[in-house]
Amino acid sequence: MINKTVKNAREAVADIPSNCMLMMGGFGLTGIPENCISALLEKDISGLTIVSNNAGVDDFGIGLLLKKRMVKKMISSYVGENAEFERQLLSGELEVDLIPQGTLAERVRAGGAGIPAFFTPAGVGTEVAEGKESREFDGKMYLLESWLKADFSIVKAWKGDTAGNLIFKGTARNFNPIMAAAGKICIAEVEELVEAGELDPNQIHTPGIYVQRIFQGVDYEKRIEQRTVSK
């Protein structure tokens, strides 16, 4: 087995340069690569384009990278809970591509799976359709959307092994598996790293072929955005 292990987040992100394209897993604050975000914050880089469903909150997740002005462009589907994001966007400091969530997911999946484009019904008749080719199939209109690929994809899993195989937990899976496949280099941080052979192959969500670097993260905060309990 090829050993993908690196020491920590700092080593994993050491060669990420300015002006590159990153994908970051997570939905809201669930399943985000907390350790790598902290390590990126220590670096003196900027001009990043980040593909991520959301943009974190003001003081956690990708929100921290925005605050430090490291991000040139976000490619996301929903950014509702981030005041700094909204400020930078409305003032023109930040470029944003807002993409329907299913289209975003499928574009990432396509990027990892070698499919350059596909037709989807999402966005027909809306501003999302502007400038895009559309075509009718069986009496319904669809838009042509293209793949997304990244220089680096950064994902967070629950368990992983030294061969890069990953297992996710709950809804922390979200965009992580598809992004793992769509990055030229995929960095995976995991809560528990074990030796190759210790995970049940039947239970692997992301095969190690997609993962180039893996390390065991520390001090996960797992902040909750909408703590909702039953009465």
């Binding site: 996301s76 589907s77 929903y78 950014v79 509702g80 909204e86 966007l89 409305l90 944003v96 807002l98 329907p100 969530q101 299913g102 289209t103 989807t120 019904p121 999402a122 966005g123 809306t126 999302v128």
Partner: peptide, 10 residues
Amino acid sequence: MVKGMGGAMD
């Protein structure tokens, strides 16, 4: 207001 469409368009 800029929030994004999330999954609504799909």
